[in-house]
């Protein structure tokens, strides 16, 4: 996919800083995500990847820096504006985070609460989303009745149900067997083609990164240590970078 870097990025992070007490997690992190692009961010466990994406959706307040989504600075928005902006962002959590007291149907309907759609329209959206992850038959099951891979797919369906412009994936393939992981990656590509969304993908999985990335960022020591395509980065000689591609 061709990505036009001359236009304004859909998501822009500048100088992001976040510490938890003495633990300086992010020190001046910068990132831009362009329309239609698949950007992969890699980093060691505990390097602050989840913290960074939680700052983007306003779950964690950064200490300083700015985050702009579609030209809006999220730190300057009030509650309802932020909620509205969040409907433009799909978020796949690291552990799926399905609501376990609700059925699959209710899980998928939850993000629709913000719009006043008719029940028929809701039903249609839910079935569409389930169809696109190939799990239509699970409609009335509880999350506890699903396997890990199925949960991940339902969570994916929930993340894309509002057809967001940006989809953020927090380690979409972690904890899955290689075959299921491949299926999830395939799904992510299908969804991206169908909806024309941009994706920000956090992962440890080199295979996943190779298949899906247009561009990569390595998050090391709280900064965007290196940027480039998979090929460019994997051929660099830096020890810290090489460690990821072994």
């Amino acid at each position: 996919m061709k990505v036009d870097h001359n236009i304004e990025p859909i998501l822009k992070i500048k100088d992001l800083k976040k510490s938890f007490g003495e633990n300086h997690v992010l020190n001046s992190y910068n990132m831009e995500l362009f329309d239609g692009e698949n950007l992969v961010v890699m980093g060691k466990s505990g390097s602050g990847k989840s913290v960074m994406i939680k700052c983007i959706v306003g779950l964690i307040q950064p200490d300083s820096g700015s985050i702009e989504i579609m030209g809006k600075d999220i730190m300057k928005l009030d509650h309802s504006e932020l909620d509205f902006l969040r409907t433009e962002i799909g978020f796949l959590f690291q552990g799926s985070a399905l609501y376990d007291s609700m059925t699959v149907r209710e899980n998928l309907e939850f993000p629709l609460r913000i719009h006043n759609d008719s029940p028929e329209k809701k039903e249609e959206l839910v079935l569409d989303a389930l169809e696109s992850v190939g799990l239509r038959h699970t409609l009335d099951l509880m999350p506890s009745e699903l396997s890990g891979g199925m949960k991940r797919r339902i969570a994916l369906a929930r993340a894309i149900i509002l057809q967001p412009k940006v989809i953020i994936y927090d380690e979409p393939t972690t904890g899955l067997d290689p075959i299921t992981a491949k299926e999830i990656i395939e799904l992510m590509r299908e969804i991206q083609l169908k909806q024309g969304s941009s994706s920000l993908i956090i992962t440890h999985d080199v295979d996943c990164a190779r298949v899906i990335s247009n561009r990569m960022i390595l998050l090391i020591d709280g900064i965007n240590y290196a940027e480039g395509t998979f090929k460019e980065l994997s051929s660099l000689k830096d020890k810290k970078i090489q460690a990821f591609f072994k």
Binding site: K54, R86, F93, A97, S101, F110
Partner: peptide, 21 residues
């Protein structure tokens, strides 16, 4: 226990992200 496990498994965060308080 219920809210605690929802917090730990990020279900509360998921709610917030989907625009529900």
């Amino acid at each position: 226990a219920e809210l605690g496990s929802m917090r730990v498994t990020e279900q509360i965060d998921a709610m917030e992200v989907s625009g529900t308080n």
